[in-house]
Write a protein that binds this DNA or RNA. Structure first.
Lengths: 125, 125
DNA sequence: CACAATTGCGCAATCG
DNA sequence: TCGATTGCGCAATTGT
């Protein structure tokens, strides 16, 4: 909390603290205040800087985000296209290997399946 | 800027403004100060709220971002898998429709072509 | 205990 | 005129 309750000096110095007399203490007080005022300015500056950086951060993240969304959109479209292309091929071929093949089911296993299929890697770290 | 230069009253009222006398003005002053102090508190509260929200925003965006990166990673992997699968089988078929087909070239044109799986359009916007 | 950094708060200037 | 903002200093508190 704040507000004085038993202080010993400064704020409108309330009656000398019974020592010498010549305001030697005032100097100390002022110096102290000045130093604190500097510290306050410094601290507030830093604070504003951080706030500003946070705003900048949001802006960058939003941009990065849009880029990623766009990428996902494109990839999804490409994937859909390839699936259809593949299905068409599968239905047009005599190769029994592809009859009734389920691409989506196949893709579920790509995640950690280094072997087969001919070359695709896919190692987990 | 700040600092008084020609004020008319308050800060340690510098000599009455030659009117009535009874500190009627003091009341006004205090009321004014009190109201301002309220406004200040309110304003600073709002300010802190906004700052807090901005931080929260960053957190959410970062999470959303990671999710998207993961999605891109998965889609890219699936796409790669399908390409290889398709190429492998295309080379094994007798269907001339797929001989020497260039999937990547094909995908460049998928952009605004959800349906249709055999031909390729190329509507650029 | 000394000192810098933070923080709540009030004042006054300025803005809208 | 009046509330909202903002720079600034004070004092209490916290962190080194």
């Amino acid at each position: 909390m704040l507000l004085d309750e038993d202080n010993e000096m400064p704020p409108v110095k309330r009656g000398r603290r019974g020592v010498s007399d010549a305001d030697d203490e005032d100097d100390d007080y002022r110096k102290k205040r000045d130093r604190n005022n500097e510290a306050v300015k410094k601290s507030r500056f830093k604070s504003k800087q951080r706030t500003q950086e946070t705003f900048t951060r949001v802006t960058k993240l939003k941009a990065e985000n849009q880029m990623l969304e766009e990428k996902v959109k494109t990839l999804t479209k490409d994937l859909q296209f390839l699936k259809e292309l593949f299905m068409e091929y599968a239905s047009n071929t005599q190769n029994p290997k592809f009859e009734g093949i389920d691409i989506d089911k196949l893709l579920e296993d790509v995640q950690d399946d280094p072997k087969d299929s001919g070359s695709s890697k896919t190692k987990r770290k």
